[in-house]
Design a protein around this nucleic acid. Structure first.
Lengths: 202, 202
DNA sequence: CGCATCATATGATGGTCATCATATCAAAAT
DNA sequence: ATTTTGATATGATGACCATCATATGATGCG
């Protein structure tokens, strides 16, 4: 079939999108190529017309995820005053909603313990993503007029990631919620942000 | 072979120990039964004389790990005054040494993103372990005379876990070290513990 | 209107894995 | 010493999986 000009591109980006979700839900080794293709309405054979290898597909999906996450976050705080924006970022991240939608969330939370076992290409994509997250957090902290933004940013991010990762890892709902609530108010307290009731996201 | 009385018990506990290491290094789905047996000097066939299933083996290994971790930590702070003990726990956990020895470290750090994909039995063992860690941290904080120990404990633990998980997930050594240092001093600052030079563990 | 093209499909291939059925064989009991 | 027992070994089995070789068939082009 000589398809319309961008038929393949469209298929490709659909594949990347599906991979992005499955990657976060099932881990890099937890989803099969055939499964991905079927989910996208295709069969396994066509995969290698789109990606050099599964590893390359995972790396591309990761890049896409980080990019989308940055856009998405930006959109959520656009126009807010810096301190409010910072509080919102924290509230959105350390939330039950984020915990309960791994396939749509931050890959640092859903994939951190898989990374040490992944091939170079994947780890590089991950590193790049984390670096932009750290840089972006540094900016947010600085904009919010918080001292030591440089050294605080990685600490705050780690606390956010740890809270959501643990709350997801744990099966006990009560414990899981306790982790989220405690971490969220702990982080905000450290940054001098008031932890008001509005931050109780679903 | 009718072996000496506790021959099988010894083999069993050796298997659990090997599994405990491989589990943390390669993840629950990253090591094979045959690999485990070979590592213990046996062949794959005998496995099912020791465990009902791989899943049961992983769950038992997890219980063993958490128990050993508690003992190990206790030993490291025995006799220290409470605040010093607390600082030591944090320094040991959020350290390059811990980051670089996953097979010997805390499973919450090495396995958190695998847990949501694990079967019930494994998740239960994990939950139990996390609960004891939270309880133990609450005690340490209270003993150290820190206010809000109850709500601070999960937040502190999450920050510790996030720091080591991220520092391990990231390939870039500089970024990895930055994460550890920032998180460690951030946590200790929040608890009013002085972050002296002595806490620079290898 | 048929032909060439290329995105996708079909169908191996060789590898890995958990699990199980059965064989071996060391030593305790007699 | 022979028997018996139970711990471990050997060798399937069926299920997955990444990858590739080759077939198909839709459609823009001539």
């Amino acid at each position: 079939m000589r398809y319309s000009e961008n038929h393949k591109q469209e298929t490709h980006s659909r594949l990347v999108k599906v991979a992005a979700r499955m990657l976060r839900e099932k881990g890099p080794d937890g989803f099969a190529v055939a499964e991905l293709m079927q989910e996208a309405g295709l069969t396994h054979g066509g995969f290698y017309a789109h990606f050099e290898s599964k590893e390359a597909c995972v790396a591309e999906a990761l890049r896409e995820i980080f990019a989308q996450l940055a856009r998405h976050t930006q959109k959520n705080v656009e126009g807010l005053p810096p301190r409010h924006a910072l509080a919102t970022v924290i509230d959105l991240y350390v939330s039950p909603r984020h915990r309960d939608s791994a396939g749509d969330g931050c890959p640092v939370t859903s994939l951190n313990s898989d990374m040490p076992r992944q091939p170079q290409a994947v780890r590089e994509a991950f590193d790049a993503g984390v670096k932009t997250m750290v840089a972006s957090m540094k900016q947010r902290l600085a904009s919010a007029g918080i001292d030591n933004a440089e050294s605080l940013a990685p600490a705050v991010l780690a606390a956010m990631v740890g809270a959501v990762s643990m709350s997801r890892a744990v099966g006990d709902k009560t414990l899981s919620d306790e982790l989220l609530v405690a971490a969220r108010s702990g982080i905000k307290a450290r940054l001098g942000l008031n932890d008001n009731a509005l931050s109780e996201f679903a």
